[in-house]
Amino acid sequence: MLLVPCPYCGPRNSSDLRHVGEAISRPDPNAASPEQWRSYLYLRDNVADWNVETWYCTRGCRKYFKVERNTATNEFRDPPMPGNKIGGKA
């Protein structure tokens, strides 16, 4: 179990989200060589350290967001997150 800090929903169990993976930039498909395109597809840093990654809030707000997580300890760093409390009557 991992509490993932969704910037819209607040802390959520990881089972409510999908781990998309390391945040990587996509090369220009028209300019990239096949080798560049394949390294974009397959190669990852896979560090045992702080890493910026993308999550998708499947069961919650359905937003993609980036967050920094330490893959050795599973801590999140400075998550841009609202509190636990959910809205209520306006």
């Binding site: 959520r12 069961r59 636990n84 409390k85 959910i86 209520g88």
Partner: peptide, 24 residues
């Protein structure tokens, strides 16, 4: 469901989306 359903966290009128019995 993994949400905190106490009055303090989800008062009357609160709206959220989450997994309930593994159903969104």
């Amino acid at each position: 469901c993994g949400i905190d359903w106490s009055d303090a966290m989800t008062p009357e009128g609160a709206v959220t989306s989450a997994s309930v019995a593994l159903t969104t």
